[in-house]
Amino acid sequence: MKKIIIDTDPGIDDAMAILLADASDAIDLIGITTTFGNASIENSTRNALYLKDKFSLKAIVAQGANTPLVLPASPPATVVHGDNGLGNIVIPTEQQNQAVSQTAHDYIINSVKAHPHEITLVAIGRLTNLALALNKSPEIASLVKEVIIMGGAFGFNGHSGNLTPFAEANVYGDPHAADIVVSADWPVTMVGLDVTQQSIMTNAYINKLKCKSPKYGAFISEISAFYAHFYHADLGLDGFYVHDSSAIVYAIAPEIFTTERGNIRVVTEGVATGHTLFKQSDRLFPIDEWSNHPKQTICTNVDSEALLNLYMNSLT
């Protein structure tokens, strides 16, 4: 089984990704670190603890950053995820479990050092916690097995941004952190809008999941109703894109994705803030702020049917 820590801002699609990790025989979910984004840091942490209580998750929960490294924080994405981050379902005011005392980035550092070359970090929110971990303990880069990021957009399949015309929300939310993380000398795979917007969970799919999955189906149907309503109102979709769960699917079955290797940078200021740029060429240009960065992997296509089947089969 693959040991993973999910860095997350739950978030409806985050919750669905966490439950996929819990259900999968291929994954040992040892930790959940929280960040701001879809919800405030307080709501993100409460939601993670609520999932831990409700589904008896063994994962440690550690609370993380509540502001970006440099820029002011954007408001929570309540229009997409509801005021409480989970589609405004009723959540108990008190949780049975509590977050550990150490910060998220310290938990990441300590876990990676305790399990060298074993832990995959799956980041499905802002990348602030990972950047803080690298800044405090750069040596973890050589000890992490892999970093999988749901974030970015590189223009494949016509997908270039969802918060701005050229920026994906997780990267835009802390572009300085994103640039640090993709520039570090550890193996990164970015599962961006190029592939996440190729897969859609329709309303019929969710209804089928509700019927077939006694443990998870009714809960996912309940939280995703708000999410589906947003996508229908905003884009006219029947259902919603499979963003965060795609990163977990990559951890389980990378063979269903098409990938490319190259250098990545993130624009950190100006009108293109949050834009992810991918250099495919090995040519050294006269001015080249890519060439001294390690090559990383981006996903450029996905077998959507296989992805949706894997999610359904894992939870049922």
Results as ranks from 00 to 15, higher is better:
4 I>A: 05
11 G>K: 12
13 D>Q: 15
19 L>P: 06
20 L>S: 11
23 A>E: 02
25 D>N: 13
27 I>M: 00
29 L>W: 03
30 I>E: 03
30 I>H: 08
31 G>P: 01
33 T>L: 02
39 A>S: 12
40 S>L: 01
48 A>L: 07
49 L>I: 00
52 K>L: 06
56 S>D: 14
67 T>Y: 11
70 V>A: 10
72 P>D: 15
73 A>I: 10
79 V>G: 09
82 G>F: 05
83 D>C: 15
83 D>I: 12
84 N>K: 01
87 G>H: 05
89 I>F: 01
94 E>H: 14
99 A>L: 15
100 V>H: 10
102 Q>F: 11
106 D>A: 15
109 I>P: 12
109 I>W: 09
110 N>S: 11
110 N>A: 14
112 V>F: 05
115 H>P: 15
115 H>T: 13
116 P>A: 14
122 V>H: 03
124 I>W: 09
125 G>D: 14
126 R>W: 10
127 L>Q: 15
128 T>I: 04
128 T>K: 03
129 N>Y: 10
132 L>N: 08
135 N>C: 12
141 A>G: 15
142 S>C: 06
143 L>G: 14
143 L>V: 09
144 V>F: 04
150 M>P: 09
155 G>E: 00
156 F>R: 09
156 F>V: 01
161 G>W: 01
163 L>C: 12
165 P>Q: 04
177 A>K: 01
179 D>Y: 07
187 P>I: 00
192 G>W: 11
197 Q>I: 13
204 A>W: 04
206 I>E: 02
215 K>C: 04
216 Y>S: 12
219 F>K: 03
223 I>A: 07
223 I>M: 10
223 I>T: 15
230 F>G: 01
230 F>M: 11
233 A>K: 08
233 A>F: 07
239 G>A: 05
243 H>T: 15
244 D>L: 15
244 D>N: 14
245 S>L: 07
245 S>E: 13
249 V>S: 10
251 A>H: 15
252 I>Y: 08
252 I>N: 07
255 E>T: 14
256 I>Y: 03
257 F>N: 03
266 V>K: 09
267 V>T: 05
268 T>D: 00
270 G>S: 09
270 G>H: 04
275 H>Q: 15
276 T>P: 07
282 D>T: 06
283 R>D: 05
286 P>I: 01
287 I>K: 07
287 I>Q: 00
289 E>Y: 03
290 W>F: 02
291 S>R: 00
293 H>E: 01
294 P>T: 01
294 P>Y: 00
298 I>K: 09
298 I>E: 11
300 T>P: 06
302 V>H: 12
305 E>C: 06
306 A>G: 13
308 L>R: 04
308 L>Q: 08
311 Y>K: 14
